[in-house]
Computed example of a mutant assay.
Amino acid sequence: MSQVVAITGASGGIGRAAVREFARRGADVALIARGTVGLENAAAEAREQGVRAIAIPTDVADADQVEAAVERIESELGPIDVWVNVAFTSVFAKFDDISPDEFRRVTEVSYLGYVYATMAVLKRMRERDRGTIVQVGSALAYRGIPLQSAYCGAKHAIQGFHESLRTELLHERSNIHVTMVQMPALNTPQFSWVLSRLPKHAQPVPPIYQPEVAARAIAYAADHPKRREYWVGSTTALTLIANAVAPGLLDRYLARTGFSSQQTGELSDEDQQPNLWEPADGAGGRDFGAHGAFDGKSRNQSSQQWVAHHYPQAAAVAAVGLAGAAALALGRRR
């Protein structure tokens, strides 16, 4: 029987790439997002792999809609084995330039959407005492940066929620697993649809990775969910380590560089339609796909990710290398 995987934010970016990855592996997939164009196209791509796929337009900020989506998935595809929370929205602006309603909306989608989805699927997984929930996070779940206060706040909240839920499941000796994947800067369409009040076009902070790197990390985490979290990309690892060791120094560094590094040299597009209140790929909209506008600057691989996924082998190679170096040094001394 095929694995059943449900993915929020499935119409574009990380979610779209994750749909392709799980479908390629033979999983039946349920796709959840607000829009219809990207969602239906993503489902069609999955079906081309010979798997079942259903597209369910859903606003994850509405708990009732999420509950209905979970009910439909289980009735049409069967018990959900893996749930992946990806959906988010954001505002690129200084904190003073964000309205209370905008901040609330980002929080409802990017944080409470994870909570509502986890609530809905967890109670069904509890009946079976099995299942995996993957929370897609970010380096910004630990390290806040300028111009993204609403998004950083939501990611920090997800991190705390994830840790709390994980400890409860461990206490119960549950066979349900939750894990979190902390992402680096990614080349997704969000920079073409996010609400931005920046003078220049928004961009991810280089180095930038392709969404397929994220998708492979999500699939690996789903296969190995006993680990509490995964870091993707060397920049994520370096950022989290630096923040743990010298957060004040990092504050000052980001104050100097965080504004310019998140903007290109091009002026913002005044006609850009933000997806904060309505989906960017709504009725008559375009399919943004998985990739954003930075293909020429993005990496398809992450050596750090390979090491994280193969650390026993990497440790063995390192041990052999150290032993060889030690033997060589000893021979020279003789």
Rank of each mutant, 00 (worst) to 15 (best):
H310Y: 09
R124N: 11
G296S: 13
E45M: 12
T58R: 02
L165P: 13
V106Y: 04
Q190L: 08
E127D: 12
P100C: 03
W306K: 09
V317H: 07
A17N: 03
S110L: 02
A68M: 11
H177K: 12
G131F: 09
R286Q: 08
T36I: 15
V213K: 01
A46D: 10
I158G: 02
A69P: 03
T8I: 09
F103Q: 05
V307R: 14
S99H: 07
T132L: 01
Q301D: 13
L240S: 06
D81M: 03
L147A: 08
V232R: 12
R128D: 09
G282H: 08
G131N: 04
M1H: 11
A242K: 00
E168S: 13
Q203N: 00
L170C: 00
P79Q: 11
S196I: 08
I218P: 06
D81G: 08
D271P: 00
D101N: 06
G285R: 06
A117F: 01
L77V: 08
R16M: 04
R34Q: 12
I73H: 05
A63N: 04
A215Y: 02
S90D: 12
S196R: 08
Q159G: 13
H162Q: 07
A117I: 01
A219V: 15
E108F: 05
G248L: 05
S11H: 10
L238V: 11
E266A: 14
T239Q: 02
Q210N: 13
A255H: 04
